[in-house]
Each structure stands twice: as structure tokens, then as C-alpha cells.
Amino acid sequence: MNDKLLEIRNLKTSFRIRDDYYAAVDDVSLNVNKNEVLAIVGESGSGKSALAFSIMGLHNRAKMEGSINFKGTNLVGLAPGKINKIRGKEMSMIFQDPLTALNPLMTIEEQIGEVIYLHNKAISNRDKKAKVIELLDQVGIPHAKYVCDQYPHELSGGMRQRVIIAIAIANSPELLIADEPTTALDVTIQAQILDLIRDLKQKMDAGIILITHDLGVVAEMADRVAVMYAGEIVEIAEVNTLFEQPRHPYTRSLLNSVPNSDEKQDKLHVIQGIVPALQNLPREGCRFKTRIPWIAESTHEDHPELHEIAPNHFVRCSCYEHFYFPDETEVENSGLS
């Protein structure tokens, strides 16, 4: 395909714990196209943020294997100087927490101006200021001229998140990674920020990786969805397919544990057990096996792979064919009562 922007092949990012390396992102392959929102979903510890940081080259000491092809350049193992030229310009990131991602000692103009200057050192101060004001207008901040000279603490959470988005889009990136962009915000502001990101996608023809654990946000924003569990992608599909015909047990469990707004259920589905810590991840066989113990051992593959069960719909391991939710009586809350 022509409009392929990012192509990740067999990416493995490992962190050193004591004397061993443990993969937090394990053999992940995916593509992001132009003008597309790819959502990455999973619980904390599933490796979704580690994946985003790998793409941005923000892991200092991690061991990275595989390839991340961004417009023909392999980002894995690229010299820091070269990554710096791409990062903030052709690809950029919206960070999660607007309270900590901004420098409290710099005015808004300085913070946004910095990223413009770094990628265009010839720019005059006047042009830079004009550009900052234009960006603030673009992300919907009222009285941009006035806000320019303010410090982060003078702005509300929603306004700060807009400033962070302004920084991310300052150089019109082709790839935008949004790591939980609205988690820290109120719902009404969340709706505005999501609208804003959607508009930007269309205006700039950008590819967006949206990392979130909020399935409602995914349903509203994504074109395609990748579900991650324990460092692996367990299912990847178009958004409608994923919500209508989820296949992998993990995807089905996640969707089932959200309070459904249409019907009043008495009990929510609970996934047994917890996401294992990085050092204790089962590296052999199906990684989700321990959390669905009522499914027969024989239904799992020894070396689970992603199978294309329908065009563009991939599911890992064969256990999905045999998966069912246990009766209320059987699960009885995994020893909670």
C-alpha cells in the first residue's frame, strides 16, 4: 500500500531487571496508515506505553530488536542526533498528564516556541510568535495572545492539554502518538479534545496511534484497534469488527467488564487473576492461559501465532475457538466472596 506511514516488524523491547532482560514489547508487528487512527488497548502492564515510547525512541537503556520503519527510515538503532531530527517534527507525541508534561518555569510561548525553533533555527522571533498564536488558535484556546505569556499553573487542565497538543502538532507531524490523551480530564473536556484530535487527523492527513484503556474512547475514535496483552498483540481488527465480533478471550473479557450503558446488569464480568509482572510473564504458550483456567489446555497452541481469520482481522492462539464465559456460579468472583 502506498499510504503506509509506519511499519513495525517483530519489535522486541526488553528492560533490564537485575541481570536479565525481559521483553515488555514482544514480537509486535503492525502498520499505521495515513489519515488513520489506530487504537492500542490493554490494561496497565500490557506494554502499550512501552510500545509508544519505543517508536518515539524514548527508552534510554532498553534493548530493542526488530525494525520500526518510518517513511523508509529504520528507527531502531538510529543515532540519537538523527532521531532528534525526526522526533518533534515528522512524528510527535501527546503525553498523558498535562500537569507534569509542561515545564512550570516556562511561559506557554517559550514551550511551544522551543519545538518550532529546534526544527527551524532560522526562524525570526516575530514569525515564531505568530506561529505560536496560530497554533493556540488552532487547538481552540481563546485569547491566544494573552495565554502566550502565561505559565502552565495559570491554565486549567483542559487548556494545558490543548497546549500539549499544540506542541505536538507544531511542526505538522505525519505521525502523532497520543498516550492516554484524555485520561486526566473531565468528560465534557474529553469530548472536546477528542473532537480536536479527529479534526487534526483530517486536516493534516496524519496517522494517529491512540493509546488508551477506555473502550468508549476507542469506539468513538479508532479506525482500527490492536489489543495488547502481556507485551503481545492478541487481536487486531477494524473497529466495527472488534466491537461486534471480538474473538480473542481477552478482548471479549475486556468488553464484558465495562458497565453497559443500555442494560442494567447486576454483575460485571471480572477477569480472573492479574496481569503478571514483567519478570513473571509466561513466555511459553498462550500468555492469557492462566486467566481463563476453565478452558482446556489442549485448545491452546504451543507457540501461539496471529491468524488472519477474516480479511484484516487477526487473532492470536487457537483458544478463541473454544472460549466461553463460565456460568455465574462457576466464576463466583474468583474467591472474592
Partner: peptide, 15 residues
């Protein structure tokens, strides 16, 4: 909390 853990705590609070 994560959604799946959320479900666990909410169920438990109801119980």
C-alpha cells in the same frame, strides 16, 4: 483502576 479491576471492585462493593 483498570477496567477489569474496576469491575472486580464494583461487584464487590455491591456484594
Amino acid at each position: 483502576l483498570d477496567v477489569s479491576v474496576q469491575a472486580q471492585v464494583l461487584n464487590f462493593m455491591r456484594e
